[in-house]
């Protein structure tokens, strides 16, 4: 999680659910190319769907990690479902709501709801669902030489957790 794609954790109940938000800004350089103006069309800056999936993966990944005190190396293994019905534009906020469906020694499955809102509107609009499968890497990759330290939950995550008042959650 070297490149954090959520800004703030709103709610974290380990073993149950986590809610996080991401503010989309025109200052993000990739929006200038996604999509740039052409000879025929004006620029249309929208948050790439792949990065919305990444945001949900980080939200759900933290939820999965927190459930086992961040001891496991939680790796995104499979996107079971990802459907988005609307774009997110600069100035809007994305809300990632992840619920833990299953967890065992091998890994975990999560169900996620993606919403967006206009600043000040106070109303969230559901725009999609993203269900993910995570692997507890140490338990599924026998023979691979993974680092001893938990490279998944690093310094950037600590900042996010501290901001949410959960600074003591990870060593």
């Amino acid at each position: 999680m070297r490149w954090m794609w959520i800004d703030q954790i709103i709610e974290l109940v380990p073993g149950t659910r986590m809610v996080a938000i991401k503010n989309v800004s025109l200052a993000e350089e990739h929006l200038h190319e996604h999509f740039a103006a052409t000879d025929d069309l004006p620029a249309l800056p929208v948050c790439p769907a792949s990065l919305i999936i990444e945001g949900m993966a980080q939200t759900a990944g933290i939820l999965v990690g927190s459930t086992r005190d961040f001891k496991e190396k939680v790796i995104l293994a499979k996107i079971g479902r990802a459907g988005l019905d609307a774009d997110v534009f600069p100035g809007q906020t994305i809300r990632f709501e992840a619920e833990l469906q299953h967890i065992d020694d091998s890994g975990a499955g999560t169900a996620g709801v993606v919403s967006r809102t206009e600043p000040g509107s106070g109303r969230w609009e559901v725009i999609g669902h993203i269900d993910l499968l995570f692997s507890h890497a140490d338990r599924n990759m026998a023979g691979l030489d993974l680092p001893e330290h938990n490279f998944v939950f690093g310094d950037n995550l600590k900042i996010i957790l501290q901001t949410a008042g959960l600074g003591g959650a990870i060593e």
Binding site: K78, G80, H102, S106, G107, G109, L133, S135, N140
Partner: peptide
């Protein structure tokens, strides 16, 4: 291999 984990979760459900 990861699909087996997915299948296990779905069978449980």
């Amino acid at each position: 291999s990861i699909d087996f984990l997915d299948i296990v979760f779905r069978l449980e459900k």
